[in-house]
Nucleic acid binder design. Structure first.
Lengths: 202, 202
DNA sequence: TCTTGATTTGACCATCTGGTCAAACTCACG
DNA sequence: CGTGAGTTTGACCAGATGGTCAAATCAAGA
């Protein structure tokens, strides 16, 4: 393990390669289903070499998840209480849908973890996520109080956005098995726009 | 392995115990994350004894999945083209939501499999599932043509129902982390009823 | 170029895991 | 109660897996 100095050129390159490989492998097979050998091979390193950069399989997973959590929550963070309510929400939905399209591995990484009870990120859920959601549902509730959007259960409104957008990444095989050649996102975007316009119009 | 005669009392009891235990373990840890020892212990059998009833870990998983696929698809199968369109769809949604509540392990079993690319049930998706969905989307399209429900992309309408209802089972930890003590399904049912009434009203 | 710290690796280890097998035990039934 | 089929188990195996370590190699600054 290198000293705690500034990372060298090689360290930067290899750490990045490892995290990229780990994202591939963990998102496709889950934590338990992924092997260190697999990640090392995909990163173009030997196993001992990989373990020179991260002390354990778990450490790689943790580094990956905590690094991505911010990326993952950014769209919700951006929801602006001073913007136009309907447009803000629709824009949030579009960003989430775009992330499902452009970052499906990240989506499945979290899905894998959550489906199995989130044993390695439970704390993040109860703390960071919970407080962010509480903050934003307060905004939603204000908008409802002002009659700017329809009155709905704010938590379930958020859940619906998450589940609908992430479905296309998390269950991509199923979506593709049913749609065949048709591009999932081409239909998804207008469907969701219609859905939330109808739902949120007071 | 016993002969292919009618199963004995002990065979029935043990096979059932194994499948029940396997449902617990596979749904909580995924195929790769589950161990035969774990399933055996949970079923109250020794590992060799378990492997006397099923030839391999994979065989248990297959038996479990194929046995549950019918249960899982039954609500969609029941969608009746001769019923009242809106009520039929709302009733389908309620049954799906109820399954999420009463059979969360089954939901997570499929979710685990799907998130990882459904390596063991790909065929079922492209065959059974695809044809059932095609059949039912035809019904939905007819209803739309007749102006009885709003015109929407029928596949995405189905996806939305799946994702919204199953979200509460598959990502239960997350839902609970955010809702706290509040019962998820108490809010989910009316939320979804409102959503789909607004969405489907022409 | 030399030196020193950073990087890489082959060999190795303990444990876990799916699966096998022969021997022992139990049960139902004539 | 004897017997043969059905059931259970301890001991075992091979391969996979996470991780270690000392030795070898490499890279960059003095």
């Amino acid at each position: 393990m290198p000293k705690d100095r500034a990372p060298t050129r090689i360290q930067k390159k290899n750490r990045a390669a490892i995290l990229e490989a780990a994202l591939n492998v963990f998102s496709a097979h889950g934590f338990r289903g992924a092997t260190v050998d697999q990640i090392a091979a995909e990163a173009g390193l030997s196993k001992p070499n990989l373990l020179y950069y991260f002390p354990s399989k778990e450490a790689i997973h943790t580094a990956l998840l905590s690094g991505l959590l911010n990326v993952w929550l950014a769209p919700l963070h951006d929801l602006d209480e001073n913007g136009d309510p309907l447009e803000e929400i629709l824009s949030y939905i579009n960003r989430k849908l775009q992330m499902s399209q452009e970052l499906p591995r990240e989506s499945r990484l979290f899905a894998n973890e959550l489906v199995q009870g989130a044993p390695r990120i439970r704390d993040n859920l109860s703390n960071d996520l919970k407080s962010l959601v509480d903050q934003k549902t307060a905004v939603l509730t204000t908008w409802m109080d002002q009659g700017k959007i329809a009155r709905l259960h704010p938590y379930h409104l958020i859940f619906s956005i998450w589940s609908l957008t992430q479905h296309y990444a998390d269950f991509e095989v199923q979506v593709r098995a049913i749609l065949g050649e048709e591009d999932p996102f081409e239909g998804a975007a207008p469907f969701m726009e219609t859905l939330y316009r109808k739902l949120l119009t007071p």
